[in-house]
Every structure is written in C-alpha cells, then in structure tokens.
C-alpha cells in the first residue's frame, strides 16, 4: 500500500492505496465519487474523464498514485456555489444527453476543450471530443451544446473558474 494525498473537488483527502489502483477506482470505490463512471477497459470511451491539475485525463488511464499531490476535479465538483457550470447548463439546454452515462466525461472534456479554445469551430469541437464515445445522441446535440456554451463565454469563464478551483 502507498499513501497518497490529494485534493478532490476542493476537499483534501488522504488514503493508503494499492499501487495498481486506477484513479477512477479510487474515486468511485474509496471516495464514493460515483458521478465518474467506467465505460470500457481500453481507454477508448472517455466516460471516466476528470480534470487533473486543470486538464482532462481519462481516469482509467492514470494510477491513483500518479495523482498524489494533485488537484482533481470530477463532474461532482464542477458546479460552484450551487450554480451549474455553463457547460452543464448547455448540455441540458441543448438536449446534449439522453441516458447520461457518457455525460460526466463528455462535459469534463468539453470544459477542457473550451478552456483551450474558447471559440472552436464545429470541426474543432468534433475533433476535440473524438476520445469520448456517446451511443445515444449521435453527437449532434453535444456539438450544439458546446457551441452554445462557447457563445455564453464558457471557455473564458471556465479558465478563470478552473484557476480559482485549483487554488481553492
């Protein structure tokens, strides 16, 4: 077992973990952060996407020990002070989800995409979400949701928000 200490959704946590424990298993099974889900075993689907020090990672592709000392934000920590993140709002507004299983990862990836490129073209959105699979929406309304969030200034807002979150 290895001792790790990190910040998850603003809370400082510390646990002994097996070195082989994946970050996603640590989040779900040790911390009960079940908002982050597992959709595959080959890092293709992106359902487990979270932010590690402000950037999106597939948490099935990161060992928990690699997150030692890091800031992790999951879908559960995205809303601030009871207010949804603009990307969350946009997914609801544009009907960018159906069963909702890919949604946590899709939203976390979209936030990262907009942080890097606040005004993406449709093609840039589609390429930016290539690592996240959705079986329900056909992506049409997900793309619309990201465009909608961009138009609301989500990218710039998030950049500030992410910085604040990281420092919290």
């Amino acid at each position: 077992m290895t001792r790790i200490s990190l910040t998850v959704d603003g809370a400082r946590v510390s646990d002994d973990v097996e070195p082989r424990t994946l970050l996603v298993h640590y989040l779900r099974e040790t911390l009960g952060k079940t908002g982050t889900v597992i959709g595959c075993d080959t890092s293709n689907c992106g359902a487990c996407t979270v932010h590690l020090d402000g950037h999106s990672v597939k948490s099935c592709n990161v060992l928990a020990v690699q997150a030692d000392g890091a800031e992790v934000t999951t879908i559960e920590g995205l809303a601030q002070d009871g207010r949804l993140h603009p990307v969350q709002e946009a997914f609801r507004e544009c009907h960018g989800l159906q069963c909702g299983f890919c949604t946590p990862g899709m939203i976390m990836q979209s936030v990262d995409l907009l942080n890097e490129n606040p005004n993406p073209t449709e093609e840039e959105i589609r390429l930016g979400l290539e690592g996240n699979l959705c079986r329900c929406t056909g992506y049409h309304n997900i793309v619309k949701a990201v465009q909608h969030a961009a138009a609301q200034g989500a990218g710039t807002a998030t950049a500030a928000g992410a910085g604040a979150g990281a420092g919290a």
Partner: peptide, 19 residues
C-alpha cells in the same frame, strides 16, 4: 421542455447499478 432527468445526470448524482 428541458428534461427533468438532466439535473442529476449533468451533476453526477446518478444511481447506476454499479454505484
């Protein structure tokens, strides 16, 4: 109408069986 289901799904307050 925007969906009633979405609030829990976009915030990760979900009840998947594996949870």
């Amino acid at each position: 109408r925007r969906r009633k289901e979405d609030q829990r799904l976009i915030t990760g307050r979900t009840r998947w069986t594996d949870n």
